[in-house]
């Protein structure tokens, strides 16, 4: 049944698929993970702070982001950001942001909401008695955080952070709605041009599967290695 498949189309388009498509997919994943983690940590700290204003803002932000489909947010930001830019720099016309910049900002802001929840859960997973024990031997707040709470929180949340990054890697394919050439976008363009839809989509699926499956495997191994003996 696969006799009329043309595998050559895959070979021919490999440089394009990886050098352009996969390069963007990986860049977007990396940038959104790094900045999403930084922003997410800030949001988690706001959420855990005693200030009602800060924690209220953090809760609203997280709830808003988690209640909207990612595709919708991608669209929304793409169409909204020129006007936000216009308002910020007080220009008399909408600022052209471009699809690439727009998706990077969108994914960062969107992932920050998810990462902040992982961070918060990680910090809260450390029992209060541990904090007490740290204080009891004479550590101050900063030292308790650094030597007692965060090392334990980090072990609890690291596998979840990696798993979320794998999900993010898959989600980046949604940028096709802005006609961006990510890995799936590149495969799709070749598929349409050469009329080889089945081959290209099968190949794309295989690549996504191999990368995610391998990454998940390593996350599981890591989880075993760093887990705390209880």
């Amino acid at each position: 049944m696969f006799s009329n498949f043309d595998y050559d189309v895959i070979w021919r388009s490999l440089p394009y698929l990886f050098q352009q498509g996969m390069a963007f997919t990986l860049t977007l994943t990396a940038i959104a993970t790094v900045f999403g983690l930084i922003l997410g940590t800030l949001i988690a700290m706001m959420r855990l702070s005693s200030s009602a204003v800060l924690s209220g803002f953090a809760v609203s932000y997280v709830n808003l982001m988690r209640s909207l489909p990612l595709v919708l947010v991608i669209f929304l930001f793409y169409f909204l950001m020129p006007y936000v830019g216009q308002w910020i720099i007080r220009s008399d016309q909408p600022v052209q942001v471009g699809a690439y910049a727009s998706t990077i900002v969108t994914f960062t802001l969107f992932e920050a909401a998810y990462f902040s929840e992982i961070m918060r859960a990680g910090i809260q997973s450390v029992p209060r008695g541990q904090v007490m024990a740290g204080y009891a031997i004479g550590l101050n707040y900063r030292e308790v955080m650094r030597h007692v709470v965060l090392p334990q929180a980090f072990r609890n949340m690291l596998p979840v952070i990696f798993t979320q990054t794998i999900v993010l890697f898959q989600d980046t394919s949604l940028v096709y709605v802005l006609s961006i050439t990510d890995f799936l976008g590149a495969a799709s363009k070749v598929a349409q041009r050469d009329g080889r839809l089945t081959e290209m989509y099968l190949f794309a699926a295989l690549v996504y599967f191999l990368i995610c499956f391998t990454a998940s495997f390593f996350v599981k191994r890591l989880q075993k290695r760093i887990s705390i003996i209880r």
């Binding site: 541990q130 024990a133 204080y135 009891a136």
Partner: peptide
Amino acid sequence: LRSRVGMVFQHFELFPHLKIVENLCLG
């Protein structure tokens, strides 16, 4: 002052991510 007052808790509260000897060295 707390470092000069020894405290023992009901649920031990040893630091689970540190070895026994490290638990004793931290403070």
